Simulated scan of single mutants.
Amino acid sequence: MAEAMNFPIAAERLIPHRPPMQLIEALEDFDGEAGTVSAQVGPGHPLLEEDGALAEVALLELLAQAYAAVQGYADSLSGEPVRQGFLVGVRKVRFLGRPQLGDRLQVRVRASARLEGFAIVEGSVRRGEELLAEGNIKLWIVPQGGGQG
């Protein structure tokens, strides 16, 4: 079992994504099955549209990367390497607002179910107290060693 890291933890220590597709900055907290990450909408963001707002698909990717950070931290606590995961489904997602260039975001995720390498994750994206998106995503987490099992 590995030693716990101090929060916040830089995202590149926990997820396989790298710029420009690394959309989150840090894991801010973790409490077993849930965690919160931070993200900044900066210039040059790959999903920034001409009007200065993020595309809605970016909010889904933020949820997926937030869970990748939570899972990456859980793996590291177990002494395991960070694993890849793939977004394979979206369900009951509500888009209530679009982040703008310069916005600081908080993304909260929690695994509500796991079965044979799949995780159902509930999550929300907020700008301060304002809820921008919420819903469920389904992810496939590559097993340790990369096999199917």
Rank of each mutant, 00 (worst) to 15 (best):
A111L: 04
V107P: 08
R126M: 06
R91S: 10
A34E: 03
E49H: 12
L60V: 02
A55F: 05
V142P: 12
G44L: 10
Q71N: 13
G72N: 07
E49F: 06
D103C: 08
A119E: 14
R83H: 13
S112I: 03
A10Y: 06
E116K: 15
L60Y: 04
E129F: 10
E33N: 00
S78V: 02
A119Y: 02
A53Y: 11
R91D: 13
A74S: 05
A113D: 12
L77P: 09
I24R: 05
E49L: 03
G102F: 04
F86C: 11
P19K: 02
F86W: 13
Q84M: 14
N6A: 10
Q22N: 09
G89I: 09
Q40D: 03
A68C: 06
V93M: 07
R18Y: 14
F118L: 15
V107D: 08
R104Q: 08
E12K: 11
H45G: 10
R127T: 07
Q22Y: 10
V121H: 02
V57A: 10
M21P: 05
K138H: 11
Q65Y: 06
L14Y: 01
N6C: 07
R98N: 00
Y67Q: 05
K138Y: 10
L62N: 03
D103Y: 02
L63V: 03
R110D: 00
E25S: 11
D103F: 01
A11R: 07
P20D: 12
P8T: 10
E28T: 09
E122S: 15
V41M: 07
S112G: 04
G32F: 01
G35N: 15
R104F: 10
K92T: 02
R110F: 01
